[in-house]
Design a protein around this nucleic acid. Structure first.
Lengths: 303, 303
DNA sequence: TGGATACATAGATTTTAATCTATGCATTTT
DNA sequence: AAAATGCATAGATTAAAATCTATGTATCCA
């Protein structure tokens, strides 16, 4: 029913060279082997592919047709294996990552350094809030996902690669700054400006407060860190964001970080993927890149 | 190094159905067999092609790439086998024939009746003088050749399918017509108008004359039967042509056939091909057609 | 007419391919 | 928790694939 790729290869060699012996040599087999394979192939096709007149081999019409198809098939396979070699060798391929919104502040720099090492790789970076990322994780839509609060109801493999401290922020003129060591109980007297439920930041905050036996009172629930910073700087209240959401000189943004007991809330950025998933070589390379380089790159002068 | 077509087939089934068990059923094998084949294929590629999360199968990026190539390869093969089935079933294909120039008078009718039975067949009909046909025969450029005088220095297979009588012709007012039984010796007193050396007609004439211990004296040597007929009708002398070159009513062309001893020179139209050549199914069909139908068709009212 | 060349076949061997049944393990559903 | 579903592995069997050496036969060339 089907030929073997080897048979096609030998047949193509025959078509090119016009000689069974030559074809055999080209394919690294003995002449009888090639002869046999060609015979089998002809039988598979059910039509004579060539005839031998004297010591010369002539392809039949059917043989020429087969040669064309065989060439196409082997070329296709050749291209595919080269592509796969590239993937294995990390010179090309596609890397798809879903990250939680706060990660957008540092992922670009990590990606940039990865690009330098693997210039031909395509990266698709999906930025969503935690719920969105978890949904993609569940459906196995990405090579890797990045978040701080992996879901407990899905079996995953995880690797931490960077601290993700959540800090309290207040406007520069907020009364909180007059106190030097602020107890958490004092802090929660204010109603807070926080990320929405469904965000990782919010989940971490809720978990931390619950552990202290407290529930935060919410003034404003916002879908973006920028919106929170703007609101806090505008004097609408105190908030909590990841330190990564703040620039190195937060005062310039009109924000200060009061020293509050229990802060920063220490979480970690994690690489997360479904348990049992076999990472592609590229994904593995990127994971290793994060594990090894994240601290270095993000504490360098430019970061 | 190479996969098997079967593996590609199973993998495509997997890609379509998203389940190993389904793919196995589709390909008519047990689940473990499919599982094994897929594993082998992945190993051949050197890259994971899919991962199993829970009871769901997800193709990897590499898997999708392979699926595309596999689909192309199997489609190509599918098309090819259909084509070959057509060739085997004589519904399509190409038939290449080289015929000696005199055969052009009757080949069209034989081809027409063959077309009726095999309408999708392409025919390439090459018309040359005998030397040209022999050259093509030697190089095995055609499925079949048609001639009366096969070369003796090439080993060929032959089959006669039709008489090819060579007749003497003279103009209607030629003095030869006053004689009732013309001896050959009288005939050769005239200088003759004949086909060129290298034509089959000429060769047959030379052979026949040599057998009678005579050599024809040549007045005019022409490359076409039509030219000979015109010259003879114009009174330039007597000639010899195949009866096939004459219409049923030769008088209308200004020609008569004097009754000369030794005429007509009886030769046969032959199907000729190199010994050892394996005829394509179409060529075989056409050969059979000639052997069976030639007399019938050419003696029918229209011929 | 030898000698060289080229394809085919025969016979044998070794490998590997393809497949099965049985079973294990994880996940999903009831 | 039990039943059902789905993939993987183990172990075994059978088939056939791929290959070799040796040999036969036809052809071409000098």
């Amino acid at each position: 029913m089907y030929p073997s790729f080897r048979q096609l290869q030998i047949f193509l060699a025959l078509a090119d060279r016009g000689s069974v012996t030559e074809a055999a040599r080209l394919c690294g087999v003995t002449q009888p082997t090639a002869s046999m394979q060609l015979k089998d192939l002809a039988q598979t096709m059910g039509v004579p592919l060539f005839d031998v007149i004297g010591r010369r081999v002539h392809l039949t019409e059917a043989g020429r047709t087969l040669a064309t198809s065989a060439r196409m098939i082997l070329t296709e396979w050749e291209g595919l294996t080269q592509h796969m070699d590239g993937v294995r060798g990390l010179t090309r391929g596609r890397l798809s990552i879903a990250v939680v919104s706060t990660a957008k502040y540092f992922m670009p720099r990590l990606l940039a350094s990865f690009f330098k090492q693997h210039p031909d790789i395509d990266v698709a970076l999906e930025v969503l809030n935690r719920d969105g990322v978890v949904a993609r994780l569940r459906d196995n839509l990405d090579d890797l996902t990045i978040m701080s609060m992996p879901p407990a109801d899905i079996e995953t493999e995880q690797a931490s690669f960077l601290p993700n401290p959540l800090v309290a922020i207040a406007s520069l003129d907020h009364p909180l700054h007059q106190i030097s060591a602020i107890p958490l109980s004092r802090f929660v007297e204010d109603r807070l400006i926080l990320r929405e439920k469904g965000s990782g930041t919010r989940l971490a905050i809720d978990v931390a407060f619950a552990a202290a036996g407290l529930t935060p009172r919410i003034r404003l629930e916002l879908g973006s860190n920028e919106a929170i910073k703007q609101s806090v700087a505008g004097g609408m209240g105190v908030g909590i964001v990841s330190r990564h959401a703040l620039s190195a000189d937060s005062a310039r943004e009109g924000l200060a970080i009061p020293a509050i007991a229990g802060f920063p809330i220490e979480t970690m950025w994690r690489i997360v993927f479904l348990k049992g998933k076999r990472l592609s070589p590229i994904a593995r390379a990127f994971r290793d890149h994060l594990l090894i380089e994240a601290r270095t790159i993000l504490t360098a002068p430019s970061g």
